[in-house]
Design a binder for these strands. Structure first.
Lengths: 194, 194
DNA sequence: CACATCTTGAACTGATCAGTTCAGAATAGA
DNA sequence: TCTATTCTGAACTGATCAGTTCAAGATGTG
């Protein structure tokens, strides 16, 4: 069982991310991480760093992975802004519908715990939410909204996207989640018609 | 220091509620509660029960207190539905703006932690969110929306209300929070115009 | 075979946690 | 004054936590 790397770093990081995602930072112990990754306590410590460092890596992995998907969804915003925003929300809805993945959202969960988290972790979470808003704003401006409209709808859409995390954890049905984003998409259609 | 009750139960419960609200269940220790309430460890145990019981009481106190305010805000829905929903969100926005109170929302925070909470606590949180939706739905129907529209807008508004908890924790400005609810209020105006 | 590399399990430290108990101090009312 | 009630501080249990260390075992490479 030695001589060469026995585990895939990315797989382990993935498992750790999902563990943090489901239970949150406070309720995830090193033993939980050890169980989730299949790695020994010592191995985690020596190759992934301590709990804080590992959590930061997981946050970044999460932001990068889904950030790409959100970007891809919004890429058609210039020609079809409504479809783009719908696709944006679909990224989240599909993630929630995936039985392999936890409900909720790692960023939202982390944001809610900001008062008890380290400043660096808090900063990463805030930054991730900021990126989301900027992504949406750029797309909406490309889609033809004014600066003001784009700003307002971007922060609204980012918030609604986070709300899906709360509502899914509280047991909302897929139909209800769809209704939540439906109102927002309709509001965008309306804004574009003006 | 004895012979008669030395502390006001409601005051103590209030302090405990705020402590849970700010730091969440997992990150609140009995020592934190002792400090917050000014009560001895033993006194908490003997007069407020164990951590789980106390948390349930705090959840109920929170739901009752703000439930009343939400109801009052929505009471004019039949004649002025848009103003009613705006007043509904104002309850949350004023709570967030109050420097005496934590950001966020106890219900939202609890909902996010459902996977690691006891079933009874999870049930209380879900119930509270369910009430919020029913409150909104009744108001919107009274305001003249169809059943379908009222259902969709109610779950949307309840979600947006929860999103304010996430966004305020992530450092969103009052103007941004206002923009978030603005889009929803506009969507309601539009629905009523049809 | 020998060595460098990797992995493991176990242990230990110092800290915190919830829950519980209890003796004693303080006090209000009879 | 006597007594029932209330409060307090301290202690203890059994558990978990993060962080760290290390010796022993396993394996691939040269």
């Amino acid at each position: 069982m030695a001589g060469k790397k026995q585990f895939d770093m990315d797989t382990a990081l993935d498992a750790a991310m999902i563990q943090f995602w489901r239970d949150g930072y406070a309720d995830t112990s090193l033993d939980d991480l050890s169980r989730a990754t299949g790695l020994n306590r010592s191995s985690i410590y020596s190759s992934l760093g301590d709990k804080d460092t590992l959590f930061l890596r997981c946050l970044d992995l999460y932001a990068a992975r889904y950030g790409e998907k959100y970007d891809a969804a919004l890429s058609c915003a210039a020609s079809e802004p409504v479809a783009a925003v719908r696709a944006f929300f679909d990224v989240t809805l599909e993630r929630i519908a995936d039985p392999e993945l936890p409900d909720g959202c790692l960023i939202a969960q982390t944001a809610m715990a900001i008062p008890v988290l380290s400043p660096s972790v808090a900063a990463h979470a805030k930054q991730a939410l900021g990126f989301q808003r900027l992504r949406l704003r750029a797309a909406l401006k490309a889609g033809g909204l004014t600066d003001q409209e784009a700003e307002a709808l971007a922060v609204h859409a980012a918030a609604v996207n986070q709300s899906l995390a709360v509502m899914s954890r509280a047991g909302a049905s897929p139909a209800q989640l769809l209704a939540i984003v439906g109102v927002t998409v309709d509001a965008l259609s309306q804004a574009l018609r003006a």
